[in-house]
Simulated assay, not measured.
Amino acid sequence: MSASFASALAAARDAAAAQHYPQGTLYVVATPIGNLADIGLRALHVLQLVDAVACEDTRHTQALLRAYGIEARALLSVHRHNEAEGAQEIVRRLQLGQRVAYASDAGTPGVSDPGARVVAAVQAAGLRVMPLPGASSVTTVLSATGVEGDAPGFVFFGFLPAKAGERQQAIESLGQESRAVVLLEAPHRIGVLADSLAALGARPLTIGRELTKQFEQIATVTCEAFPAWLQADPSRSRGEFALVLHPVRVQGDGGEALRVLRLLVAELPVKTAVRLAAEITGASRNTLYPAALAMKGEGDS
């Protein structure tokens, strides 16, 4: 444990110890998605306070806790393959009046991670669940995209299906979605995802790779350029990915507007290209702008 985290533990105690932490409660604890400094003060305090920490991988969570200078009283292995049985053990402990924390390997439990079954089982038993908000790759990547479209909000899809037919159906459905779509992917499948998304053509895509870590990379390209972007540098296929499919809705003949925009972006600054494309085609500047950024990104990659 570094001196920095010693100070963090003291700050956690000062900031959070006076609050009420009822017994017989499941504490859903968000942990960093990469940078250890992204842990919350209340999370640090609760992880010291609870009688047991349930987690996906006990070795990973033990290393995380030790980095902060915390020795858990008990670690319970509760992962995707034993979640139902693990949930019952958690319920048993809560019924005895224990405090139990649940943490997935990174980010917020239950969001494309184990945890949802555990929470449902605890609630079904009439016991309390207290969430401790914190890091999430979903909101992290969204905050760096600047997406804005005609349809408000976003859709969280997570991981696409592994089977080719189901994945193709999902891609076709996403192509009709007017809102921003957040996707997640592992490094060993990112090439397959890139090839699948290429079918969406000029729709802009923001790629978040290794978010919050030393080699974090955020880039915006078009879907059709995504495979080439990956292949341009072998290091781009490494690490965990969070991606945002931008909410492009072009009025009128969308294909023609994007064709005109591509020609103009190749010769002019983005703002000028967007203004002229909007005047020529009647498309909205707000929907053309992210597409222009993505097209410009292709030329820079």
Rank of each mutant, 00 (worst) to 15 (best):
R128M: 12
V111T: 12
M295N: 03
T31D: 12
A164H: 08
A283N: 10
S7E: 13
L293A: 02
L96D: 06
T206M: 10
A101D: 10
L276D: 13
A17G: 02
L65K: 06
H60D: 10
A52T: 08
A72K: 02
A219L: 00
L36I: 06
V248L: 15
V274K: 06
Q95S: 09
W229S: 02
A10H: 01
H60F: 14
R73I: 00
Q231W: 03
A199G: 09
P227I: 04
A124E: 11
I70R: 00
A18P: 03
L276C: 03
D38A: 10
L261P: 07
S137L: 13
E185P: 10
V141A: 06
V192P: 00
T61S: 15
V270S: 01
A16V: 01
Q176W: 05
G201V: 02
R262P: 00
R128P: 01
A10Y: 00
I280G: 01
E210S: 04
T222F: 03
W229Y: 08
L26H: 13
T272F: 02
A15R: 11
P152A: 00
R203S: 06
T272S: 12
A219K: 05
G297K: 02
F215M: 11
E83P: 09
T31M: 05
P109I: 14
L268C: 03
G97S: 05
A292S: 08
Y289P: 05
V147C: 12
F5L: 11
L193P: 06
A283M: 11
R117S: 07
A225V: 00
A162H: 08
E148N: 07
V138E: 11
G126M: 11
Q19E: 15
A10R: 07
F5V: 12
L258H: 03
L64T: 13
A18Q: 13
S77G: 07
Q88P: 02
L268H: 09
Q123H: 14
E172F: 01
V78N: 06
E71V: 00
L127I: 08
L197N: 07
V248D: 15
A125L: 03
P161G: 01
V192K: 13
L205Y: 10
A124T: 04
A87E: 12
T58K: 05
P32N: 09
S237N: 03
R275L: 11
R73Y: 00
V182C: 06
S104D: 13
F157E: 15
S104G: 13
R179M: 04
L26S: 15
V155K: 01
A17R: 06
L268Y: 05
L142Q: 07
S235V: 08
V248E: 15
Q62D: 12
A54Y: 08
S112V: 09
L9H: 00
E71T: 03
T206N: 11
R275V: 04
E56T: 09
A74D: 07
K213F: 11
V53F: 04
E279P: 04
Y68K: 02
C223S: 06
D51K: 09
E267A: 13
V270A: 05
R128I: 05
D195E: 15
A12L: 02
L245V: 14
R93W: 06
V147I: 14
E224M: 04
G146L: 07
P247I: 13
R93L: 11
L230H: 02
A54E: 09
F154P: 01
A106G: 13
I190P: 02
L96I: 00
A120H: 03
P247Y: 14
A16L: 02
A283R: 08
